[in-house]
Structure formats: C-alpha cells, structure tokens
Design a protein around this nucleic acid. Sequence first.
DNA 1: CGGATTTTTGACCAATGTCAAGACCGGTGG
DNA 2: CCACCGGTCTTGACATTGGTCAAAAATCCG
Lengths: 251, 251
Amino acid sequence: MGYVTSHGRVIPNPIVDDGDEQAFCSTCAFGSVCTARGVDKIALRELHCLVEHVGNYRPGEAIFRTGERFGAIYAVRQGTVKTRLVDIEGRELVLGFYLPGELVGLNAIHPEAYPCDAVALDTVEVCRFSFPALATLSTRVPGIQQELFRRLSKDIGNAALLAGDYSADERLAAFLIGLGRRYAERGFPAEALHLAMSRGDIANYLRLAAETVSRVLRRFQDQGLIRVDGRDVAIARPAELFELARPILQR
Amino acid sequence: MGYVTSHGRVIPNPIVDDGDEQAFCSTCAFGSVCTARGVDKIALRELHCLVEHVGNYRPGEAIFRTGERFGAIYAVRQGTVKTRLVDIEGRELVLGFYLPGELVGLNAIHPEAYPCDAVALDTVEVCRFSFPALATLSTRVPGIQQELFRRLSKDIGNAALLAGDYSADERLAAFLIGLGRRYAERGFPAEALHLAMSRGDIANYLRLAAETVSRVLRRFQDQGLIRVDGRDVAIARPAELFELARPILQR
DNA sequence: CGGATTTTTGACCAATGTCAAGACCGGTGG
DNA sequence: CCACCGGTCTTGACATTGGTCAAAAATCCG
C-alpha cells in the first residue's frame, strides 16, 4: 500500500503492523511503554485488552464530534486526522494534525466533552482507549501514567508553538520541518512529505490565508528550498529551511 | 492586606490562608481533591508532607529558569507569576499568567527541563510539589491523578485559545473576561481587576504591540465598556465585553 | 468530456506594527 | 515640599504584512 503521486512516485504511508501481544503496535502511542521499558506482561496484556481497534474512516468522516461526552482517547494507527472547531458562523478553526502513533482527544479530559471534531483526512484507522479504564490501569502501571503525563505536557508545548506572532515564512517553514521530523520519528524520510491536508487546512492551521500559503510555497520553491508537486513536498535544503523556522522551533 | 489604587480604593489580593491539615490550602491547586472529594486523610497528609512552601519572591525574581532540570511543579499561593521564554536575540515571549490556585510548570514534564522562565510579577508565594513524589502519590490516590490529568488537559485548551487569528479587540476583551472569571473562581469580584502585569506584558502575551493595547483599552473606555485607572480595570458592561470576546471564549 | 473543487496569481486594502515624541507616575534625594 | 529621574503608558504619523476579492488555471472524479 502507498500513495501514487502525479509523477508516478510511490510514497509509503506510515502503516502500523498489528504486532503480537508482546510487541503490540510498533508505532503505537504506548509503544515505548510496551517495548523499550520493561512493562510486565500482565499489564501489557491488560492494555491490549483495553484497546479497541476501530478502522476504516473515510475522508471527512468524524472519529468524534464537538460536544460528545468524553469517554476515550484515540491513537492514530493509519492515515492523518485533523482536529477542528467550527464557530457559530460556520467558520472552521483547525487545531492540529495527527499522524500514526499520535494521540487525539487529550484536550477533552478537562471539559469532559470533546471540545472539537476529529476528522479523517484520508483512510484512517485508530485505537480507542477508554479513558476511565486507561486511568485506572495507569495507577497500577507507572510507565503508562508517565507516558500520559508526557503526552499531555508535550501537547501544551506544541499548542504554544503556533501562538507566537511569527511571519508567514516562519510558520510554513516550521510546519514543514515539524512534519518531516514527525515522519522521521516513525521511520519515514523527513524530506519527502506527502500532505494529507489541503492548502486551506494548512492555512487555517497556521492562521494564514490559503492564498498566502500558496504564495509562500511558490517562493520557497523559486528559492530552491523545496520542490512542490501538488500535495507532495520535497525538502531540498533542510538546513536553510530550518534556519527560517528557527525562531519557532528552537525557542 | 490589599492593594491601594491611585483612587484610594482597596483591592483585596487573593491571598491564601494556610489552612490546617484537613482543609489544606483552600484555594490550592489540589483544594478540590482535598476538600470537595473525599480523599482519605492519610493521602491528604501525605500530600501535605510532600509540599514545600516557598515564599517571598520579589517582582522580577525567577521561580525557575529555562533549561533547569525539571523536578517540581508549583502552585501559586499569592501574587501573580508570568512564564516567558527569551529567544536568542533577547526578545521576550510571554506564555502565560498564573493566579493563586493555578499550577506552573506542567509544560516541563515532557522535555524534562523547564522550557521557560517563571517570574514573579509582584510578591509571590508558591507551593512546590516534587513531581516524582507527586506522580508516585497519584498512583495511590486516583483523585490526585485525575486532578493532574484535568489540569494538563485544561492547559492544552488554554494554549490553543490564543492561537486563533483574532483581532486586537477580541483578544483584549477575552483577556479581561478570562481574567475576571479566574478571579471569580477564587471568590473575588470578576468586574474589578487589578493587573499585576505591565501593558507590555499583556501586549506580548496577546501578540500585539504595547501601543495597540493602549489604544484598544482607550477605545473600550471611550465606548463605556470599561473604566481604566492605571493597572486597575473595572468592567462596566460585562455582557457587551463578552460579546466582543465570544469568538474566542465560546468556541 | 464536463462540472466541481482546489490551487494559483494579481490587484488592492486594512489592520496592526513601527518609529518617534510626549505625558504620566512613583520613587528618591535635596 | 519640590525637582528630578527612570520607567511605563499614551498618542500621532506612517509603513508593511498579510487579508480580501476576483478570476484564471489546474486537478479531481465521475
């Protein structure tokens, strides 16, 4: 499986192999808990039981919706998820994009209801973790509690990233570099990105106009920093692009 | 104790009474755990032991600094704390303001080092919670774990608030209303604010220029929405101000 | 092929930032 | 008590970035 671009290249999707009970999902949100650190087999089996494998959301389908009672968090297994809220006038506000291995729904713990929609951008599979069950388990397995704390803490930092008053160039550079890094964490090349989201979504997420995203990508390409082919972006000069993104990434 | 304004009014500071072992700090971050919900006395005593009461930071003094190894989170007891990061060129970026009862340092769990400075804006007292100890305790006391999850989750939402592409008017209205609400949660009037932070800090936090903050406050006053007297702000028409802030506050 | 959607491009505009100057305010010392 | 000083705050004039509007081009998809 993969994604065939308009140039005929094949970009592999970060797909998760199912794994057995010991290995569990190799790129799963809790993979590090289950594999690297010696979590006892019983706890691992419990985590495995607790998980509900939900699959085959099609583009545009919602995993959860604003206002639904909070009951579970989701780990993306395949595809890309965006979270967004829609205000009274119907304007959309994109909050984030989630790649395989990342957790969606952490921001719903506090309000006890999902404060946003989670929408599949392509074909998506997720793992559903009942939160009460996960919380209970994590009192018995410190490694899991620790992992939850870390994920939550990380999201606070990420949310603050965008908040600065950065230029359009800085935002886009940081977006591309950041995406590349996240792919690289899952073992995919950091310089050959396939964007699952539209320009409009990117623009919305970066608080820019879609036209601005277009123009900046164009200019980056003219400057030889990247090569754009529709939704495929190759980062030609990662170092220079990073230099642009530095004010955001390297606080 | 209180704050005497240039008009001679006295604005009470939200000061925490020490409380006994049962009541603990009435406005403390974990107050709800310790009081409302029936946490057993032993656990409460343990929490009480774990806490280190650190006091008397003067304006400008740091509670922790960027890059220091993460070891504890802090609950504000008295005064106001700002968190900020300073980039390579020395430009400041204000991340947040913390009132009594609020937790500082949650964003440091993941990187395992404080990603920002925490600075006292006035006379500040805090409670220091060793994080490893707190995490351990929270495996035994589900209420505490729950409270930590909720606080972390809440911060994710808050961080995202600012990130929208809102107008200067919307930002300032939301800032004032939000501050009022947080004071109200601690039992202080939501309509008579004393700002512990400078215009520059507010501007920086809202990603505006200090001049813009000045101008908008001026205009709000001319429109009769608020009354400004230096760092004292009275909200004259909360409903109308909220209407301005609605796009941000009522997602 | 044809209609719909997304993306790109161009021309213009407005909100907010920047720069500069002056007002205010509180603290200090004569 | 008053004058001075430093920092904060306000106000005005002007510049700039990115948004808006409109239309063309490209892409998708049946």
